[in-house]
Design a protein around this nucleic acid. Structure first.
Lengths: 202, 202
DNA sequence: GCACTAAAAACGAACGATCGTTCTTTTTCA
DNA sequence: TGAAAAAGAACGATCGTTCGTTTTTAGTGC
């Protein structure tokens, strides 16, 4: 008796995760202390350790949640109609995220190269994104709506590299302006995909 | 009397910096301990602190040296003749760096967002690179060798974002293959610059 | 060229601070 | 009221750094 309801448990765990996310984004994984997170979440160490039994678990938790959110947001993107316009929308949406999340994204990416557990989580997002775009590009090619000069896998590599450039720059460059870079980058991507408009070459 | 010659001092300081660089690349700035660096350099803490009086100084030293090396290497690049070929060379050269340096590059970039001293160093590299390419693109445009659709500054932003994508991916993606991504990315960059070949539009 | 010397360089045990984590106590709630 | 949840002082480990000691080194007189 006196066990908190699953919803309450989930609520408090999320609350701590939120606080941890802010701390990690602010100072990086290895410079934020457990005390920092406790202070940010207004929770005692004892309470924190009920929900996460190590700092590692907290990092993994952040990564996992970040992954899930990104995947679901990405999956909800409508890539059916005018796909170049949809890509632009995706880009804009992607670049409107708060600074917290931007830095966290980078932080996770680096941690993934050194922490196997985080590495696995990160890999699953990467695979998800790659697969999603591969399917899209393949479909578009099969339907004759694009005529890429390079094969799909190569175009995919280049496309994802450009996307990573945005990922990096939006986090690191304080003067970053989405509406400036997005048009030329979409132009560059169009050169890779070579979309067919009205059956005539562009 | 019995003071070491400036060359010897420089030698040993470089030796420590080398070791620190390897450690930092391996585990990141904030997870490598001074003991790690001492072990790697085969030097006692006391000796290390003669050459660098804090961990901060060591980080700044690494950044500074990295910056200088990159700048000089970049400045030595021949961008005179066929500039698309020169860009390809630059890219290949850039992507052949050892993994150590790749991860260090990313590490420095993040540290720059949180450590003012590193931030200044990083900014000076960024400015140098941006200025170099701005001058190149402006010259090419004035000479009628390129006909970009967007203005120079916008093209520059997009170009540097793509370059950052390479910077990130070559460090983080273990399956990264330079010879696969480089051709399509150069194709994309060409779409931005629109080089003029033999006076005819491509 | 060789002992001698004084200062610089290097050593490495040890310091205080702070880290992640635990544990005893107190509070909260079904 | 009894067990779960939260609190927060305290733990051992480890961090960056220091400091008393030893070793090395370049200059000196012979």
């Amino acid at each position: 008796m006196a066990k908190l309801s699953p919803e309450t448990l989930r609520e408090r765990s999320d609350h701590i995760l939120d606080a941890a996310g802010r701390c990690f984004a602010r100072a990086g994984f290895h410079r934020t202390t457990m005390q920092d997170i406790c202070r940010e979440a207004e929770v005692s160490p004892g309470a924190l350790y009920i929900y996460f039994n190590s700092k590692e678990a907290l990092i993994a938790g952040i990564c996992e949640r970040d992954r899930a959110e990104f995947a679901s947001r990405f999956a909800a993107m409508p890539l059916g109609g005018d796909f170049m316009e949809a890509l632009a929308d995706l880009g804009r949406h992607f670049l409107e995220e708060p600074l917290d999340r931007r830095l966290l994204c980078i932080e996770v990416g680096i941690e993934a190269t050194r922490n196997p557990k985080v590495g696995e989580i990160q890999k699953s997002v990467d695979d998800f994104i790659r697969t999603s775009f591969r399917e899209l590009f393949t479909k578009l090619k099969d339907e004759g709506r694009i005529a890429p000069v390079f094969d799909i896998e190569t175009v995919l590599d280049a496309f994802l590299t450009i996307a990573d450039g945005l990922l990096w720059r939006r986090a690191v460059d304080e003067n970053f302006k989405a509406d400036v870079v997005l048009p030329p980058l979409l132009h560059a991507v169009a050169a890779l995909l070579r979309p067919i408009t009205d059956g005539a070459k562009s």
